[in-house]
């Protein structure tokens, strides 16, 4: 880290590829996307794959290569998680599509991220939008789970599957960033980062940066960062519940949801990680029982309407199981 400079970007932004040529992995995908740039034409696209594999980045690179540095004027960026309903999306797309396309590319791009968070009904409405404005707009839909995108949309899109990054891809990228930043580094630490981030490049880079901000990138520091990043409340919550203190566990849950701003889904996913993690030391049989109910609750979270109620049912179940298995 140089001390001369007075601004520090998050490395996830600073080292994001800006053009298709800068993308080092997903080679087949990149080759096909380059064709679109050469022909200055493309169908609607659906990018699907796990988080941190470069879907959104690839979409921006594609747009950059099509329109040049000022590409963000030619695309409408929407995020299904943040937009309030299909009506808002419809009116934004309408307005955007109405303005005239100039330049040598005969269309503009609507980039819809986290599209799998839309309900099937909203997706039907989206499909009609795609048809309505197909003359001068193209949609790029981005999703973690392609199966959550309705068939009629899938069939209108060219589907690109993004695969999890290999260990070599992640480690060499991290090494490259570390060199550019002049970070003190233990090679083994990078492998640990890869393991902990499960092929999610953005997470890997965040861990790298936080670790270097703490002082250096060593195995010890990496574990420290990851430990700090998962609010300890999750583990403490599970512990209290298993020890029979339901109300205490519920208090921690509220802390997580209201103060940390985690969604119910975030919480149950982190709980799942804790159950099989090394810290809690649960009986093997109990792990399975908890996981089973966690799965049920995760499903109900999407079905129900109040996350806390669903997670309270989970915590109450933990308290009961804790008593049976005499966990304390």
């Amino acid at each position: 880290m140089s001390t001369a400079q007075e601004y520090e970007l998050l490395w996830a932004e600073k080292y994001r590829p800006r053009t298709l040529d800068e993308i080092v992995n997903q080679r087949d995908t990149v080759i096909r996307l380059r064709k679109f740039v050469e022909e200055k034409n493309m169908p609607h696209l659906l990018f699907a794959g796990p988080p941190g594999t470069g879907k959104t980045t690839a979409a921006h690179c594609l747009a950059h290569d099509l329109y040049g540095d000022n590409y963000r004027a030619y695309i409408l960026e929407l995020n299904a998680s943040d937009e309030r309903g299909i009506e808002v999306i419809r009116s934004k797309v309408k307005e955007f599509a109405r303005s005239i396309v100039s330049g040598e590319v005969p269309f503009k791009i609507v980039l819809l991220d986290e599209a799998d968070n839309m309900t099937p009904d909203a997706q039907q409405a989206l499909r009609r939008l795609m048809e309505l404005f197909t003359i001068n707009t193209r949609f790029i839909l981005i999703a973690n789970y392609p199966s959550k995108i309705i068939e009629p949309i899938q069939s209108r899109c060219a589907v690109f599957r993004f695969t999890s990054l290999s260990k070599d891809d992640v480690v060499s990228r991290l090494k490259w960033i570390a060199e550019k930043e002049g970070v003190e580094l233990e090679d083994e630490a990078l492998e640990v980062i890869y393991e902990l981030s499960e092929g999610d490049m953005r997470r890997a880079i965040n861990v790298l940066q936080a670790s270097s901000a703490l002082g250096k990138v060593t195995v010890e520091y990496v574990y420290r960062v990851v430990g700090l990043a998962h609010p300890r409340e999750v583990r403490e919550m599970v512990k209290s519940a298993l020890a029979g203190d339901f109300t205490g566990a519920r208090g921690r849950l509220r802390e997580l949801m209201i103060s940390y701003g985690l969604s119910g889904l975030d919480v149950i996913k982190q709980v799942h990680r804790e159950i099989f993690g090394a810290e809690l030391k649960l009986p093997e049989e109990l792990k399975v029982l908890i996981a089973d109910y966690a799965g049920e609750i995760q499903y109900r979270l999407t079905e129900g309407s109040d996350d806390e109620i669903q997670l309270n049912a989970f915590l109450a179940r933990l308290a009961l199981l804790g008593k049976k298995f005499k966990v304390s």
């Binding site: 998050l10 932004e13 959104t56 995020n79 998680s81 700090l228 990043a229 998962h230 701003g261 969604s263």
Partner: peptide
Amino acid sequence: SNRLLMSKRSFTAEVLPYLYIV
């Protein structure tokens, strides 16, 4: 979130914890 090209929701869950650390 806009500069990291992610939703506010994912930012809160995925990046915010590292910001706290720094």
